[in-house]
Nucleic acid binder design. Structure first.
Lengths: 194, 194
DNA sequence: GAATTAGGTTAGTCAGCACTAACTGAAATG
DNA sequence: CATTTCAGTTAGTGCTGACTAACCTAATTC
């Protein structure tokens, strides 16, 4: 039964995670203090320890959550696709949408992964690897004659392309729909061996 | 006249910058101590202050140097090109080579730029903007009917693609020449409006 | 409604780290 | 060769920041 207190706690935890994404993205994991994080949600400092065992635990929750969402969501769109080319297009759409919707998390993911404790870092990396292999397997069906190694490099570079949006604040200079379409087109072009 | 001491000093400074690139790339600016940096070149801690006024000054030298090299080198290859399509191909070749030769600097550049003091950060950003506009101007000649805003977004995303190599250690899994050719091909494909 | 739980508070504690002080010895200078 | 310069040393200093202690109060439990 969801008691008043437990719901308050859950929403505070969510607020902390959201604030952490924003703060870590702006200043880096090491540039944000527990005090800053608490202040961002209106509590002060040590209250954070009522929700997370420590600063690293906040980062862990954020990054495990993100790579989990990517993996789960990617698997879902592939399962829903009719054929391999359709799956690839769906993956591109899905990833572009994710990057545009969660620029902060994307930024933290490839900037502060190294600040995770070993165990958690390996967990996140395992999820990321699985996600890459999902792409590689679809790519392999669409381009059967291309060596898997090359397809894996293509996938990595394409993530770099799509994930760069958070870096270029230029995204704000055009309507979101235009940006989305452009990134999808570029990603597909980059993925296709000529 | 280059005295014995002055040459020793210059080479120590170079060694410090090289070590800084590597350490900052691995652990982030805030994750590296002055002590670490000194130790990496065989001196201990405060000796660094004989070469740089402070920790931030090391980062400044590193990043201003890098964006300067990019801008200067980019301008040179454009000037040397026979026509616009040639200039674009040369820019791609130049940038891919730079990223593969200086993965640490690339990583530090887009991870720790925010740790620079305001003045220096603006200086680096100005150089980066000029470099982007160099690309945009060449792209504008090759694709005159495409709005400049879209070309700028393409340039940014292409940098993300090329600069992602340092992130994916996968680079080690194939011969350097293969990686280089693949990145060049992907970059050109991504840059070309279909 | 008394007892307990738990999210919050403020006031430490302790470690790490950027930077300074004081000094040393060898190269540079005249 | 006497003097100065300067890259290095070790020993602080002061601040920041993660985390702990002790306590307080209101929601939960029985």
């Amino acid at each position: 039964m969801p008691t008043l207190r437990s719901r308050a706690k859950a929403s505070r935890r969510d607020a902390l995670l959201a604030a952490a994404a924003e703060l870590f993205a702006r200043s880096g994991f090491n540039g944000v203090s527990i005090e800053d994080l608490g202040a961002a949600v209106g509590v002060s400092g040590p209250a954070v320890y009522r929700h997370f065992t420590g600063k690293q635990a906040v980062l862990t929750a954020l990054l495990v959550g993100a790579s989990d969402d990517l993996m789960t969501g990617g698997q879902a769109v592939v399962d829903a696709a009719a054929d391999a080319p359709g799956a690839l297009a769906a993956l591109v759409r899905f990833h572009v949408r994710f990057a545009l919707d969660n620029p902060d998390v994307i930024r933290v993911q490839d900037r502060d992964l190294g600040s995770l404790p070993d165990t958690d870092r390996h967990r996140v990396r395992a999820l990321q690897r699985a996600y890459v292999e999902l792409w590689v397997s679809v790519l392999g069906q669409v381009h059967p004659s291309t060596p898997v190694t090359l397809l894996r490099m293509r996938a990595h570079a394409t993530f770099g392309l799509i994930n760069s949006t958070p870096h270029s604040a230029a995204a704000a200079s055009a309507p979101a729909e235009t940006v989305r379409a452009l990134l999808e087109e570029m990603a597909l072009a980059a993925l296709t061996p000529r």
